[in-house]
Lab assay of single mutants.
Amino acid sequence: SPEEIKAKALDLLNKKLHRANKFGQDQADIDSLQRQINRVEKFGVDLNSKLAEELGLV
């Protein structure tokens, strides 16, 4: 269901964000992850996106 997909995506992105902060990645990478999280919260996951591929939806 779209809600489950959204939850999985947010979980994955939050893990990536945590790792980025923990290991001191570029601020641009961290900002990009934050924008992705905001986009998923607002609009859900686009099944044509790279994120959908990472989640194994495509």
Rank of each mutant, 00 (worst) to 15 (best):
L12E: 04
R39K: 12
E3K: 08
K6Y: 03
S1E: 07
L10V: 03
Q36V: 07
V58N: 11
L17E: 00
F23D: 13
N48E: 06
N38K: 14
G24R: 07
E41M: 11
N14W: 15
Q34C: 09
N38M: 13
L55K: 00
A9F: 05
K15G: 07
A52Q: 02
K8Y: 10
V40N: 00
S1C: 13
K8Q: 09
P2W: 14
L13V: 00
R35W: 11
E4Y: 12
G44C: 01
D26K: 10
I37Y: 05
S32D: 13
D31E: 13
Q36D: 08
K6V: 05
S32N: 14
G56N: 06
A28K: 13
R19W: 15
K16F: 05
D31T: 07
E41V: 10
F23C: 15
A52T: 02
H18A: 13
V45Q: 01
G44K: 00
D29E: 15
L33R: 00
N21S: 08
L55D: 01
K22E: 13
L13Q: 00
E4W: 15
I5M: 11
F23W: 10
P2S: 13
S49P: 02
D46M: 05
D26E: 09
D31I: 10
L51M: 04
N14R: 15
A52S: 05
R19I: 14
I30S: 03
N21K: 15
I5C: 06
N38E: 15
K42W: 06
V58S: 13
A20E: 03
I30M: 05
I30G: 02
I37N: 00
G24H: 11
K50T: 10
F43V: 05
L12C: 08
E54R: 04
Q25T: 12
Q36T: 08
E41H: 11
S32C: 15
E53Q: 13
E4D: 11
A20L: 11
V45S: 01
R39Y: 15
E41G: 05
Q34M: 15
D11R: 09
K8A: 12
Q25K: 13
K16G: 02
A9I: 08
Q34V: 15
K42L: 13
V45Y: 02
K22D: 06
E3Y: 06
E3V: 05
K6H: 04
L13A: 00
G24Q: 08
L51R: 00
F23T: 13
K22N: 07
K50P: 13
K16H: 04
L57A: 04
E4R: 07
K16R: 11
S1T: 13
I37C: 01
A28Q: 13
L51F: 07
L12G: 01
A28T: 10
K6D: 02
G56E: 05
Q25E: 11
D31Q: 09
A7H: 08
A52L: 07
N14C: 14
K8H: 06
S49Y: 02
I30D: 02
H18M: 13
Q34D: 03
K50Q: 11
L33G: 01
D46F: 06
S1L: 08
D29Y: 15
I5R: 04
E54D: 06
S1M: 10
E41A: 08
G24P: 09
E53D: 06
N14A: 12
P2L: 13
A7D: 07
D26V: 10
N21C: 14
L57F: 11
L13I: 02
S32T: 11
I37D: 01
V40C: 02
D31H: 05
P2V: 12
V58M: 11
F23S: 12
N21F: 15
E41P: 00
E53W: 14
F23E: 15
Q25L: 14
G56K: 06
D11S: 09
L12V: 07
N38C: 10
P2Q: 12
A20H: 04
F23L: 14
Q36K: 07
L13S: 01
S1A: 07
A9M: 05
L55A: 02
D46P: 08
E54N: 05
V58E: 08
R19D: 15
R35H: 12
V45E: 01
H18C: 13
L17Q: 01
A28E: 12
Q36N: 03
